[in-house]
Simulated scan of single mutants.
Amino acid sequence: MYVKNIRLINFRNYYSLNIKLNEKTNVFIGKNAQGKTNLLEAIYICGTGKSFRTSRDKEIINFDKNEAYVGSEINIGKYEKFIEIKLERDKAKRIRVNKTELKSHKELYSGLNVVVFSPEDLKLVKGGPSERRNFLDTEISQIKPVYNFNINRYNKVLFQRNNLLRSGKFQENISNLLEIFDLQMANIGTEIILERYRYIKELSSILEITHNNITSSKEKLELHYISNIEILDNKIEMEKRYLDKLRNNVKSDIESSFTQLGPHRDDIFININNKELKTYGSQGQQRTAVLSIKLSEVELIKKQKGVYPVLLLDDVFSELDEERRRYLIHSFKNMQTLITVTDAVDLKEMDNIEKSIYYIDNGQLS
C-alpha cells in the first residue's frame, strides 16, 4: 500500500503542488511553519476524510481563497484508487472516489490506511478521555468501516436522548419516550464497547513485544479499556444489563440533563510498571509509550489487512534519543513512510535506506 502522488490547490500554504512520492521513504526538510506537516495532513485526509490537526475544515483552506482541493492516487495491492476532496468555506466537504461522488464524507472508505506519529500525540497520555476515545474510534474505523457507521448512529441517538433529557423535567411520560432511545443505545453501544475491547486486547498483545524491544524489557506498558457498562462474553446478556442500567439511571440523567452511561464516557488506562503513566511517568517514558503504541498500530493493521499502512512521522526524530531513532528507522523499512525534519543532521541514521529527499521553503518544494 502506498500513495503514488499528491496534488494540492490552495491547501493551507500550498497554492499549487503536484508531487510524485517514493514508494518507500520520503523525507521533507524545512524550518518550522514552512508547510511540512501540511503534506502529511493532506495524505491523512485522503485516508480518513478528516484532519489529525483540526476538526474545522475551513482552517485547511488557504487564507486568501474560498476553496481548496486535495487529489491523490493510491496503490492498494492489485488495484488503484483516485481520491479527491474539495473543501469550501461555507459548504460541507465533497469527496470523490474514482470520479464517483459520495453522498457524505462519512461514507469514505478509501482503503488507504494511515498511522501518524507526531509530538501532539502525547495527548494520548496527557489529554482527557475524549482524546483516547477519538484515538480508538479513528483507528478501529480504518480496519472495520462498519464501526464508523455504528459510531455515527450512536452519536445521533445520544444527541436525541440528551435533548429529551433536557426537556424531561416538563414531561410526565418521559420514561416511555426514553425507552425508544434506550433500546437503540443499548444495542449499538454494546457493539461499540465490544469492538473497542477487542481492539485494545489485540493491540496490547503486540504492544507488549514492541515496548519490550524498545526498552530492552526494562518497562512494562499496559492498556486497559475502562467502561461503565459491564463487559461480558455473552453479547445478548451484556445488552440486557446495559438496558437495565439505562432504565435505572433515568432520574439521575434527568437531573444532570445528560446521558451518564455508555461508550461516550469510556476511557483507556495506560499504565507503566503498574502505575498510571499520566501521573507517574516521565516525559521520556510517555513519549516512548506513544511510540510503542503507534508502531503496534502499524503491526495490527498489517495483521488485519494483510498490508502495511502508510506511516506519517511528523517532526519526531528530534524528540527521540539515538537508540529509539534507530529502532524507528528499522521498523519502517517495509512500508511507505513520510518524514518531516527541521535539519538534515537528523538523517544520519538513514544512510542505508532507499529515500527521496525534498526541501520545503514557504510552500515551495525542491
Rank of each mutant, 00 (worst) to 15 (best):
R325L: 04
P263K: 05
E222N: 08
I236Y: 15
D57K: 05
L261N: 08
E191R: 14
V146G: 02
T259V: 11
E276M: 11
K294I: 03
L203W: 03
N62Q: 04
G262Y: 11
N22R: 04
K126N: 13
L223P: 03
T138W: 14
N75H: 12
K81R: 15
I9T: 10
M185H: 01
L221N: 00
V310A: 00
N26A: 09
T337K: 04
T342W: 03
V70R: 01
Q286A: 08
I193K: 04
K78P: 08
Q142T: 04
D121C: 06
D64H: 01
V116P: 04
E67S: 15
V27S: 07
R94G: 03
E120V: 12
K50G: 02
T54M: 06
Y79K: 11
I193T: 12
V125S: 01
K156T: 03
Q160D: 06
F317V: 05
L311C: 07
N18P: 03
A186R: 05
E237A: 13
V341A: 13
I226E: 12
T37H: 10
S292M: 02
V341N: 08
G306K: 05
N212G: 15
M335H: 04
L320C: 10
S130T: 12
K126Q: 09
L178A: 05
S130N: 07
E73N: 15
Q336E: 07
N273A: 07
N273K: 01
V70E: 03
G284F: 15
N26E: 00
N62D: 07
Y44D: 00
L21V: 09
E67I: 00
L136E: 02
L194K: 13
K294W: 01
R53C: 07
V316A: 00
L246T: 11
L261P: 04
F170S: 12
N38R: 03
V290F: 03
D182V: 10
G71V: 01
C46M: 09
D244G: 02
E297L: 15
E23I: 12
Y308P: 03
S318R: 04
Y327N: 09
K355M: 12
V114A: 14
N150T: 02
G281A: 09
K126I: 10
N334G: 09
L232D: 06
D361M: 08
R133M: 06
S296I: 14
I339N: 01
L300Y: 02
I270S: 02
R53E: 00
